[in-house]
Nucleic acid binder design. Structure first.
Lengths: 187, 187
DNA sequence: GAGCTGATCTTGACGCTGGTAAGATTGGGT
DNA sequence: ACCCAATCTTACCAGCGTCAAGATCAGCTC
């Protein structure tokens, strides 16, 4: 399991095979299959581990941000993108749903936990200023789409040209701050 | 090539293999490899085709939207998400960069063409109201991240719970319109 | 203590995959 | 008539996921 994570972050998702995991763990090639059922099982358990870490990171960041809704939303965005940058392989796996089994209990629970952490970013704001259902849903979707899209594009290197065009030594962090400040979601 | 696209949209990206393409095209299993070099070559050519279509769709939608910068940005968003919904397999492939070869001329050119189409969404606005470089970059990144994130989450089914919670018969289109209206990027 | 039982792992096989090498076929240009 | 480049076929290799059968062993029951 930790061997699998090592392979994932070092060699990427396409190198994460049952047999490679077995080699890294020093067991025979069929041992992982007996644990996890099949490759989808291994990937799903690993993704579940990722979701638990992810949900925890987001939750803690929002706790530390205090009560102000906008501060919470920004903290959520930083934690979201920060997790993707810190664990790009894991993050990619978590959103590679065609290789995961969402019915697996560990994964299902971990996703539900992470989603409740994300929902907490928007709920404080919704409480403060009630809106029609469509606007509430649109705010949630917009915030999620913004940070998810930023994370995906960033770890895929597709923002590097934009970052390189920035004046001075500014990097991805600066761009993210500017994006969170510029996109005044829901105001 | 058209056989490959058929397989991609029907059976998904993991079923798109050299041998399956060869079978669908009625040739021997090694024929595709001699055309495209290797699997990465085939996928890259297919992604290039996708980028050309994508750039064209975005460009035409923005042409039809007139001169108003906000209308152009909304049209870009609709075209972006619309393309992803219409060709989910192709769209996924285009952003699966670990399986593509960006050095392949066809793909490199097609990406450059599509990016220039996207850039045109923000350039009109930048001309009208000059801003510091960081703000300009942040607006571009925010718009791109918003629509890309929405498209990715949508075709992965991750917005379905949110959409199901909408009142009445509202679907993804309504949510997208609300998101584009809510997220007043750069205002 | 003897025997069973379930978990864990090994071994070996199957068909699938991508990739390579060598040769066949063919159609156009000199 | 010749050649040559493109296209395809055939045959093979290693790696992969998956399955079935058996080995090993700790822990529990009688």
């Amino acid at each position: 399991m930790s061997a699998a994570e090592r392979i994932l972050e070092r060699d990427g998702i396409q190198a994460l095979t049952l047999r490679a995991t077995a080699r890294a763990a020093g067991v025979s090639h069929a041992a992982p299959a007996s644990h996890f059922g099949d490759l989808t099982g291994l990937l799903s358990e690993l993704a579940a581990l990722g979701y638990r870490r992810f949900g925890k990171a987001v939750f803690e960041a929002m706790e530390a941000a205090g009560e102000d809704p906008r501060a919470r939303m920004k903290a959520m965005g930083r934690a979201y993108v920060g997790f993707a940058r810190k664990h790009p392989g894991l993050f990619s796996l978590m959103y590679r749903s065609e290789r995961l089994d969402p019915a697996r209990p560990a994964l299902r629970d971990a996703i539900a936990e992470a989603r409740s952490a994300l929902r907490a970013a928007a709920s404080a704001r919704a409480q403060e200023q009630p809106l029609p259902p469509l606007q509430t849903a649109a705010q949630s979707a917009a915030l999620w789409a913004l940070v998810h899209g930023f994370a995906v594009l960033l770890i895929d290197g597709r923002l590097s040209a934009l970052i390189a065009s920035l004046p001075g030594e500014e990097g991805a962090d600066t761009l993210l701050e500017a994006v969170l400040a510029t996109a005044r979601v829901g105001e």
